[in-house]
Amino acid sequence: MKKTVAHDASASIKGIIYQFYLAIEWCFKLKPNQSLLFEKDGDIAIPDEANIEVKHFIDPLTDSHKNLWNTLANWLDPAFDHSNYSQLILITTQKIGSNSKLADWQSKSLEKRLKIITDILTTKDSLNAKQKKVEPFLNSQKLVDIIEKFEIYDCSDVIEDKYFSLIHQIGKGVPESNRTRLMNALVGWLISPEVAVGDNWEVTEKAFATEFDLLESQFKQHTRIFPPKPLPEDFTVTSATDSLYLQKIRDIEYYDEIELAHSSYCEVLTVVSEEFEQGTRQKYFDNYQSEVISAFERKHKKTTKKVDDVIVDSQIFYDDVLESESPEFETYNRRPDRWFRDGVLHVNMDDESLDLKWKLK
């Protein structure tokens, strides 16, 4: 006999998952500097563009269905400022009912849309709770403004179909065997703490594009090319002549290396600010950086055991470290060039909290 529970949450959970699938779809539509917000003014919101209510239901969307009136009531709420959006959209897996006045909603004029809402509210013997919240706004300018922006997209793919259509949409650049993994990784990132921080659940166009680019490359055949060395005129970060990392080079009297060290320092911080500031890429950079520091500390500890001339031996140690091979960097087809590893070392030499130095004693 089939076991039942007092409250089956599977339908509501499906609705939440479906909301994330729709969010991924809309993230691909974001323009530069745009953001997508979850549960801010609605299920999905893109400031200055669209406010989207997402519904995953099987039964038809009728004239009295709660999804229609919940949506309108939410947008008519005093706390909601519809002027922040040029589109107010209801996306639902439901099909508009065969007898519903909502049929062909998109093609109807504003006057016809308002008449439909008015007729539904004025011809019923009794109104449900949400309809009663909308009724006071009949003949109001606020309702006119909202109905003018209101779009209904019915018959949206149900959750299973949406999942597989997204896999096909986003996975064209990776082998077929990896497309599901790419989709699952993207959903995982979307619901991770780095996106959902406190009350702010926001995805910027830059963060999404960066994360997708990284995940896509991860599930390809590892053909991603490491960022090139930036030119001095493109540096976004520089350092002062009295910086700690430069002082540590002066401590071993290796003055000829100061200019090159300064360049490596600026090159790395410029690349990091453009490529590795957030998401999974940042984690990969953190792993690489840890490997660089660990290798340096091991070599420094070993070399310190035998020192004849502190300055000369420290300069030789400096050369040996910078001439050694750079560690590998996840997702790239080859290890970064040495200028990147050198810059990472100089950046960490500049950190007062780390006891790193070139001097052997």
Rank of each mutant, 00 (worst) to 15 (best):
L36K: 04
T304G: 03
H300A: 05
K206H: 11
I147H: 10
Q19M: 06
K55I: 09
F219R: 02
R281I: 02
Y288G: 00
G171R: 06
Q221K: 12
S12V: 11
N287M: 06
G198T: 03
I316A: 10
A6Y: 11
F208D: 08
I117F: 11
E297P: 01
K301N: 15
T122V: 07
Y255M: 06
E277T: 15
Y21H: 14
D251R: 02
V347Q: 07
D242E: 10
K361N: 13
L22M: 11
A6F: 11
D157Q: 13
K306R: 12
K306I: 09
L356N: 06
G198W: 03
S324C: 01
K2A: 14
V268A: 05
N70F: 06
D308F: 13
G42I: 03
I147R: 05
R281Y: 05
W26P: 04
V307M: 04
F150K: 13
V134R: 01
A185V: 01
T180C: 10
L356M: 10
I225T: 05
F219C: 04
S83H: 12
F57V: 07
R281Q: 09
E216V: 08
D337Q: 07
F235C: 06
Y284C: 02
V271C: 02
D350Q: 05
N287Q: 10
K149V: 11
E53M: 11
T304R: 12
I116C: 10
N348Q: 11
P327D: 03
K359W: 00
L68D: 09
N67W: 09
I44S: 05
Y288N: 00
I167Q: 14
S290A: 14
N99F: 02
V203L: 00
D48T: 08
F164C: 05
H346E: 06
N139A: 14
P60R: 13
E194D: 10
K31H: 08
I52V: 11
D161C: 04
K359T: 02
L88F: 08
L186R: 02
A45P: 03
K149S: 07
E291L: 04
L214C: 07
G173H: 10
V292L: 00
L76E: 07
D251E: 10
N200P: 00
S264Y: 12
S243H: 05
V203A: 02
E25M: 10
E352K: 15
K2S: 14
E233A: 15
I249C: 03
S326N: 01
T4K: 13
H300N: 03
S83M: 07
E211N: 07
T118N: 14
D213Q: 08
R341Q: 01
N51V: 14
F296L: 02
T93F: 11
E151C: 07
W358N: 02
D251I: 00
C155D: 15
Q169N: 11
V344M: 00
K31N: 09
V174Y: 13
